[in-house]
Every structure is written in C-alpha cells, then in structure tokens.
Simulated scan of single mutants.
Amino acid sequence: MAAEAAPFKVSSLNGKVALVTGASSGIGASTSILFAKLGAKLALNGRDMENLTKTAKQCKVAGQSEPLLVPGDLMDEDTAKKTIEKTVDHYGRLDVLINSAGILVMGSIETTDMEQYDRVMNTNVRSVYHLTHLAVPHLVNSKGCIVNVSSVNGQRSFPGVLAYCMSKSAIDQFTRCTALELASKQFLEKCKETHALGRPGEVDEVA
C-alpha cells in the first residue's frame, strides 16, 4: 500500500505580488493556481499564449483576481526586462519570483550538438540568471523571496539528458550562491525584530 502524502500548511499570500515563469504548464501552472487560492496577485509568464490564458482563467476562478499576463521567451533580454517592468508598473511592487520556466532536451555527449546545448543552457540557466538579476532590487526592497525550480537531475547523474542535467546543477549552485549573497539584506534586518539587542551578538559578548 502506498503511503499517503503528509499534510502541509501554507500561510496566506494575501496581497503579495508573485511573478511566475513557465506558468503555461506543469509546475508553473500549478503553482500559479495555488498562489491565487492563497490570495497572491499574479504576473504570469509563458511562451504558449493559449495555455497561459487557460492558467489565468483557472487562477481567476481560484482567487477572484485577474492575473497580469506577461508572455514571451525569456531568452530574449528585452522580453525579460519588460516582464519585470510591466509587473512592477502594474502592481507597484514584487514580492515573489518563481523561476519555473525550463526545457528538457534528450541527448548524450555524442548526440547533443551545440545548438541544442545552447538552447538548454540559455533557457534553463542564462534566462533565470538575467531575470533574477533584474528582479533582485525590487525583491530586496520588499524583503521578498525567490524560488528556483530545479530537479533531481541536478544532484544525480542520468544518461541521455546531459545538457539538462548540467543546467540543473548550475541552477542548484546559482541558488546556493545567491542565497548567501542576499542573506545579509534579509537576515540582519530581521534581527531587529527577533533579537533583544536588535542585532546578532558579537563573538566577544558570546565569550
């Protein structure tokens, strides 16, 4: 008998502005609908306009709010810039960035040519880096957060999906490094509320 999934609780996202990429299908679409149920204001990005519209309709039913659609291919730098600009112009802020857009191309070192390799790395890594770079000033201002959708392929080795595995390993490292770089902009401010001194203790004070 299969074990039942453990129940989980998600706090309200009422009033939070979330930009979800890859929202036309899969994890991105499902995340968008859940966020709508939790009260988030959504900006949805995807390349398939028909499916993106379907997701938006489901979000509106779930959350009674009309999502902002910012369709386009994020590999295009101008599209990435406009995606952030339109989201912030429309809502006045950005609280959450969900980097869910990605592609999987089958192929080994013998069969994956450079066009395929570039397409996977540009979509799964370069566009994520660029969009995050553009979003960070707004997220620092709102004390927001970033969610990068990775895969077990980034941690384990699988044959036949070489470029994809490499791209997800890069996303894992990108996430770790970025978290360390941005931690001081979140954690030290939070200390003002959670520490009696309004700051972390110094080493000589601990000694």
Rank of each mutant, 00 (worst) to 15 (best):
E4S: 13
K9V: 12
V10Y: 15
L13S: 13
N14R: 14
T21P: 10
G22V: 01
S24V: 07
S30L: 11
T31M: 09
S32C: 12
I33P: 04
L34K: 11
L38Y: 07
A43Y: 06
L44A: 07
L44C: 10
N45H: 04
N51R: 15
L52A: 09
K57M: 14
S65Y: 09
E66R: 07
G72K: 00
G72W: 01
M75H: 06
M75V: 02
T79C: 14
K81I: 05
E85T: 06
K86I: 08
K86W: 15
G92I: 03
D95V: 11
N99G: 04
S100D: 06
A101P: 02
G102E: 05
L104V: 14
M106V: 08
G107F: 12
I109C: 12
Q116R: 11
T123P: 04
N124D: 05
V125Y: 10
Y129P: 00
N141L: 15
K143N: 09
C145Y: 05
S157A: 12
L162P: 08
K168G: 02
S169R: 14
I171Y: 08
F174T: 04
L180A: 15
L180Q: 14
E181C: 15
E181P: 08
L182N: 06
A183S: 13
K192T: 04
H195W: 07
A196R: 00
G198R: 09
G198K: 08
